[in-house]
Amino acid sequence: MNQPVQSFSTTPVRSLPAAWYWDPAVYEAERKAIFAKTWQFIGPEAEFAKAGDFRAVQVAGYRLFVIRERSGALKAFHNLCPHRAAPLLSEGDGHCDVLRCRYHGWTFATDGRLMATPNFGEAGWFDKKSHGLMPVRCETWRGLTFACLDDNAVPLVEFLGDLPALLEPYPIETFGKLDQAEFAMNCNWKTYTDNFVEGYHIPGIHPGLNAAVDMTRFETTHQRGVVIMKAPQKGGSIYGGLWLWIWPNMTLSVYPDGMNTSRIIPTAEDRTELRYEFYFADRSPSLLEKHRATIETNCQIVREDFGICEEVQQNLKAGIYRDGPLSPRHEDGVQYFQDMVRQSLGDHVGQ
């Protein structure tokens, strides 16, 4: 692999304004212009094996859930009762045959129809048919489930851009989930994403990863909707394959015997959660210890990012830093991600 060609453009390439990482107005604009408009990764389709299996999630304040309906179809709904807006399901995975609001007991079929309104009383104006759950679009691709709040969004496979072509050589639908891990950090979702889409920080923050790959040949590029990171591994480490980020807040990394996915979940302008899931081609008991070591190695890398991301967040909010120059060699992914944010927000926020 040749060294990346340095760009000597005379046009400055600079990062997003610091205020975009802590201003509540920017976060609110992102909720509506980004997270309410894009396909959101929910999890592996295998999690919905039986009718009634569900996963309830939230992203940027929007609560929704996906459930396997009795007909066998996957359905998605806003996680709120049309009576008084209480959530029907607690966040996480589970199973139910009937959806029941714990606030006032309204019950719904798994296809969203309102079934019963206990003790509501007689009201000639009330029509059950017009008070079902609010549907959300749901589609799957190669064993992965996605949902989208926007009825006018493009189909999922179109939204995924160049991801399908990039992953064509990898049998990802044959990988089975083994475990998951959750993390929380005190920083904006973009602070963490900026960190994820570049390898520039690896020598300073990830000594183990730095020793396992050839950083002189680390490469970061982008295609439609995807940032691609790869580096030759040393000594058969776990880091072969591709490390991918998918607009706006999903990651998928393929390694020699499996993959991991994650959701980068904004919960406030200065708070982010990560939900990782780990999959392997062969989950035989004899390989369990090896796979657990792979998972722990990945989790350790994530934990190593926490401190620097939280300190960066504090400096972004302190009022001294305005913006910074982006490296033409190492920060192509950062520039691409930030340009996507700028394009999505448009005139919603000032510069």
Results as ranks from 00 to 15, higher is better:
D179C: 03
N152K: 15
N152V: 04
G161Y: 05
L144E: 06
L149W: 00
C138E: 02
Q180A: 12
L156M: 12
P169V: 14
G161M: 09
R137E: 06
E139C: 01
E158V: 13
T140S: 14
C138W: 02
D179W: 08
L133Q: 09
E182F: 05
Y170N: 09
C148S: 10
T145N: 10
P155W: 13
V157E: 15
M185H: 01
Q180G: 12
N152G: 14
V157K: 15
C148T: 04
L156P: 08
A153E: 06
C138D: 02
F175P: 00
R142W: 07
L160V: 07
V157N: 10
F159E: 10
L178A: 08
A147V: 13
D151P: 12
D151W: 06
L167G: 10
P169G: 13
R137W: 02
P164Q: 06
R137V: 03
L166T: 14
G176P: 00
G143L: 12
P169D: 12
K177G: 03
T145C: 15
E158P: 04
M134E: 09
F183W: 07
L144D: 01
E158T: 15
Y170V: 11
E158Y: 03
A165C: 03
E139N: 02
F159H: 14
V154F: 03
A165Q: 14
F183D: 05
P164V: 08
V157P: 03
L144I: 08
G143T: 11
L156Y: 11
G143F: 12
V136N: 02
P155A: 13
L163C: 04
M134W: 05
L166S: 12
E168L: 11
Q180M: 06
A181T: 03
P169R: 12
E173H: 09
I172D: 07
C148L: 05
Q180K: 08
L163Q: 01
L149M: 13
T174G: 01
L167R: 11
L178V: 03
F159C: 05
